[in-house]
Each structure stands twice: as C-alpha cells, then as structure tokens.
C-alpha cells in the first residue's frame, strides 16, 4: 500500500509518500517547506497562504522523488489537527481534492500521534516508547496506556520551541531561533540561576522566559544566558520524561518534534536513558520535524485497521487532543 500524506499544522507544509510493505514503513519521499515570518511570530493566515502557494508543487515534487505514478497512490492522508485553523484547512482542502480526483480514500490523522508512530515505524527496535515531543507549540510526554496514547505530562503555558523563539526574538534572532540559541549556548560556561518549574509530570516555561529576558536587560553575557536556558529547560524536560518512564514502567524513550534536533537535549535524554538501562531512539531529522511522511504512515496504520473517513466528514479539529484517538491498531 502506498499513501501520500499532507502535513500542515503550523509553519511547515509537507508532502510525504510512504510504502507499506509487509508491515514495514518505507519512506519514498518527504518534502518539506517552512514558512518563515519576516518579523514577529507566526501569522496563521500568512502561513496558510504560504502553504497554498507551494502545496501543488510540493505534491508534484514528492511524486517525482518517490518515483511513483499518481495512479499508484492507494490512500491520501492529512493532518486533521491539532494546529492553526487556516493551515489545517489548506492541507485538508488539498487532501480532499486529491482524494476526489484520484478516487482514492482519505484519512485524517492526529499530528501528535503521527510523531510517535513514525518513530515506531522507522526504528526497528522501538516498540513501546515514552515520547518526549518537543516542538514550537507542543511539549508533551506521551505513552501508550489502556488503548490510547495518553499525555502524562505537558506544558502548562508555552511550548519549549515557543519559549526559545520568544527569547530569540527578544535578542534579535530570526525564526527558528532554537539552532541559533544552541550555537550561542555552546560558548556559554557560566550558569545563571533560572526558575526550574515542574509540577508532577507537567512543566512550565514562562517564568524562566521572563527571568532570561531580565538577564539580557542586565547585559549578562548572551552565551551564558543561552547556556543556562538550555541547561535548565532541557534538564526539566528530561526529568519529566524520566518520571513518566518510571510511572508507566517503560524502558524505551523516543524523541520527536523540531527541538529534538538539539544536540544537548538529545545528549541529556540519552544519558538519562543509559542511566536507567533504557533504550534511546530518535528518528532522522526530517522525520522529527513536522513532515508529510509521518502523516502518511499513520494514515496507513489506521486504514489497515479498518478505520474509514468520508470526504464530507473530513473536518479539521484545531483542538484535536492526543488522547482522543482510539489506538485500535495496537494491542
């Protein structure tokens, strides 16, 4: 079975094609384009316009790279939520158009669950992980329990990526700020005390963001501020992940989301996993960030499990919670 997946929840628009061969997940293509605002944060309408302009070309490119014909596509999958309404609607509209014109079934999938399933699909040993999902908007610790992917911990205010971007904007960096902050942090060595805020398995960043901005106003060395932000937020993220692993008795940890590209975060979670005798997994970078391939793969899993969606019922859901999905494809 070959599925074309369209991702469009926020900054990124992506089209990926996956072949499912004897339950294996083979990525045939995975093309991503990212909307970068000239200034300020994401503007939902501008992002959606960006997606609409590029989507047709991305679909063609994805088909070319995969080397398959349109008539070989068996299923069209799209990100049904959560995300920004205008972006979701753009991706969904394209998916419906493809489904109707190719006369192929359509499937709407949960974006957060797709981040987890692509890890399980592409990493052989990764069977039942706790996922630390860190992106701009989302920061969740997700694991499978009693028939659903449940959120054991999450941010109580802003996502970690958003926290990094907000600080980055304050100091004049361009989106995405995470990689630039990471570079600066490598040259930091003096730890500046920052609020370390976790509640149970939940986490909060806004206090830390304010404190970091105050250090900036007091002309503390930028490299040290970035170093301290990373050390504090990543330690807290690693801690809630470890708590969730202890709570759910799981011995695999998986990273997902844009911030998973950060080497320091990877190192910390890897070290934590090693220390508790657990295994550490991280998908390749283009499967960590928002992408169409993961949407395609989850579409296949759901379709093969007998789940069907009619085009006329393929509404998007901006507030589609991770734990609203019945995970019938897993035991």
């Amino acid at each position: 079975m070959i599925c074309l997946g369209i991702e469009g929840t926020a900054h990124s628009i992506g089209v990926g094609i996956i072949e499912n061969n004897r339950r294996k997940c083979i990525v045939l293509s995975n093309i991503i384009k990212i909307y970068r605002p000239k200034q300020g944060g994401i503007h939902p309408r501008e992002a959606a316009n960006h997606h609409a302009i590029h989507l047709a070309d991305l679909i063609k490119e994805s088909i070319n790279v995969a080397g398959v014909d349109f008539n070989k596509i068996d299923l069209i999958s799209f990100s049904q939520g959560p995300g920004l309404g205008p972006c979701l609607r753009t991706a969904a509209t394209a998916a419906r158009a493809l489904s109707l014109s190719l006369k192929k079934p359509i499937m709407g999938v949960n974006h957060c669950v797709a981040h987890l399933e692509i890890g399980r699909g592409t990493l052989d040993e990764c069977k039942d992980p706790v996922l630390l999902y860190t992106s701009g908007a989302n920061t969740q610790v997700i694991a499978f329990a009693e028939g659903k992917y449940r959120v054991f911990g999450e941010t109580l205010d802003i996502g970690i990526g958003n926290c990094l971007d907000k600080f980055g904007r304050k100091i004049g960096l361009e989106f995405p700020c995470g990689p630039k902050i990471e570079k600066l942090a490598e040259k930091g060595n003096q730890y500046l005390e920052l609020p370390y805020s976790i509640k149970g398995m939940d986490i909060a960043f806004s206090g830390l963001l304010t404190a970091s901005e105050q250090y900036y106003q007091k002309n503390k060395r930028l490299e040290d501020i970035c170093f301290s932000i990373q050390e504090t937020t990543f330690a807290a993220l690693t801690e809630i992940t470890e708590r969730a692993m202890a709570h759910t008795d799981k011995d695999e940890v998986l990273l997902g989301g844009g911030v998973a590209s950060n080497k320091r975060l990877r190192d910390m979670v890897h070290k934590m996993a090693e220390d508790r005798g657990a295994r550490f997994f991280v998908p390749s970078k283009d499967l960590c960030i928002d992408n169409g391939a993961m949407i395609a793969w989850l579409g296949i899993l759901m379709y093969n499990n007998g789940i069907r969606l009619k085009v006329e019922e393929s509404y998007i859901d901006q507030r589609f919670r991770t734990d609203m999905v019945d995970v019938s494809w897993r035991d």
């Binding site: 005390e193 050390e231 330690a235 690693t238």
Partner: peptide, 13 residues
Amino acid sequence: QKTYRIKDIDDRL
C-alpha cells in the same frame, strides 16, 4: 545525582 544535568542545577535541586 543526575549525570544528565550540570552540577549547579543538580546540587541546587
């Protein structure tokens, strides 16, 4: 002691 976090943070926590 958690080896994944720096000593400043670990000791304080």
